[in-house]
Computed example of a mutant assay.
Amino acid sequence: MMDTLLSLRVFAEVAEHKNFSAVAERLGLSPAMTTKHVKHIEARVGARLLNRNSRNVSLTEAGAQYLQTIRRVLDALSEAEAQLTTDSMSPRGTLKMSMPVWMSNPAFAKLLTTYNQQNPHVTFDIDLSGRKINMVEEGIDLALRVAFKLDEGLIARKLSEVTFQLVAAPAFLDSFGRPTNPANLNDAPLLAYSQVAADGRIRFGGEEGMDIKFRPILVSANESILHQAAIAGMGFAMLPNWAAQNDVKDGRLEPVLPTIAWPKLHIQAIYADRSYLPAKVRSFLDFLAGPDGFSSALE
């Protein structure tokens, strides 16, 4: 008789790693037995959960829904088992995260270091691609975003507010001219973040403010290329203060109309809707929201 609980664990591992052989080795099973466990679960639910061929393994739509449900059960069971050990409340394991490219900076690296010093049994696997992700199918524990569409089954938790500023390279401003009022920026060349201002429209002055209609000349979901193009003198860019502050300090970029109330967005943590959160996720969320987290890094 097949061990259904083990079969559930095997299915979850295969769904996340997309490789039967790797999971078999990881769990100490034969590849044939690993396949039998997955087939056992598919037979129980009466649906095909994985598409597989000689090269690829991927979740079916039913498989993605089923994985999201059983994760709650498996995570809760792991937590219950951990509570019987002496280090039950100690976060541990790999925290798989996705976050914007602009967070790849010294301030956030310092946050990771501080957390790691406090929680040495947690390791990080971080995706900085800037692409749209499927958190369930890709096994992402936590995504940090300032602009997003919240998919069904996910929760958003506000962590901190990020102030943006309009910047440009001094050489570009020498050529274009230094704007003295927002009207000077209509039809100005913009390096546009596709998630926020793909059409070149940016609101200033808060909720009661007005729109400026820039002319996008470079549109990307990757903030790094926008940042570097701004330094190179290609056009105006709207960057988080956190990302632009060193370049402004060192003279590579200049703030444009710095007294204007440019947009403010919240950094939000996105995670699966679960009644139980693994200790590694819960502790890192609490750390980011606490006094040693974003509030300290963004000062």
Score class of each variant (00 low, 15 high):
L6C: 07
S7M: 05
S7A: 04
A12P: 01
E16V: 12
H17E: 06
K18G: 01
N19R: 03
V23H: 01
A24M: 00
A32I: 12
M33A: 15
T35H: 12
K36V: 09
V57Y: 01
S58E: 09
E61S: 13
A62W: 06
A64T: 12
Y66T: 14
R72T: 12
L74T: 03
A80D: 15
D87A: 15
S90V: 15
L95P: 10
L95H: 07
M99C: 12
V101S: 12
N105K: 11
A109H: 13
K110L: 12
L112P: 08
T113P: 08
H121Q: 14
V122I: 04
T123C: 13
I126D: 00
S129I: 04
S129L: 02
G130R: 01
K132A: 13
M135C: 03
E137M: 00
E138G: 01
D141K: 03
D141C: 02
A143D: 04
L144P: 05
R145E: 04
F148H: 07
G153C: 05
I155L: 06
R157L: 10
E161H: 13
E161G: 07
T163R: 14
Q165W: 02
L166C: 08
A168V: 02
A169C: 02
A169S: 03
P170F: 10
A171N: 13
S175A: 14
F176G: 01
P179Y: 08
P179S: 01
N181K: 13
N181A: 13
N184K: 13
N186T: 12
N186F: 14
D187L: 12
A188L: 05
L190F: 12
L191M: 08
S194H: 13
A198S: 08
G200D: 09
R201H: 10
R201P: 08
E207H: 14
E207I: 11
D211V: 14
I212R: 04
P216V: 01
I217V: 15
I217D: 07
S220V: 05
S220D: 10
N222H: 11
E223M: 15
S224H: 15
S224G: 14
L226H: 04
Q228Y: 09
G233Q: 03
G233T: 02
G235D: 01
P240H: 10
W242H: 11
A243F: 12
V248G: 03
V248I: 15
K249S: 08
G251L: 03
R252F: 06
L253N: 01
P255C: 07
V256C: 03
L257H: 03
T259N: 10
T259P: 06
T259C: 09
K264S: 11
A269T: 06
Y271E: 02
S275W: 10
S275A: 15
Y276V: 14
P278G: 00
K280L: 06
R282Q: 13
S283K: 05
G290H: 00
P291Y: 07
G293W: 00
F294T: 05
L298W: 08
